[in-house]
Amino acid sequence: MKVCDIVHLLDATFLAGEDLGENEVQSACGADLMSDVLAFVKNKTIMLTGLTNLQVVRTAEMLDVACIVFVRGKKPSDDIIELANKHGIPILSTAHTLYTACGILYANGISGS
C-alpha cells in the first residue's frame, strides 16, 4: 500500500510531504508512547498518534517511518510541520480516533508493526 491509499482510507489530509504520496507502507503502529515506538517498530511503518510534539517527528526520523498520522483532527504546530518537511516525512491528519483509524487500516490489510 502507499501513503496516498492511506489518505483515501482515513479520509485524511496532507499537512506535510504531499509529494511523498507514493511512499510504500507495509505496517502500522498506533501509540502515544514514543519509548514503545522506538523499541518495537520495524521498517516502512505508518505511525498513528495523538501526541503532537517535535519528538514525534524526531522519533519518526530515527526509525525511517514512512508516514505520521495525527488522529482526532489534531493540528500540530508549524515547527513540527517544518521539521517533517526538512526530513521528507509525510504528515497526515484524520478526524478519526486512534482506535478507529487503526481499525480501518487493519481491516484493509495493514498489519501491526
Binding site: L33, S35, D36, L51, N53, Q55
Partner: peptide
Amino acid sequence: IRVMGFGAGMGLSNMRN
C-alpha cells in the same frame, strides 16, 4: 516526561539491543 511520550523504562535496554 511521560506526557511527552517518554519515560517508559525502555531506553537503556533499547540502546543495548
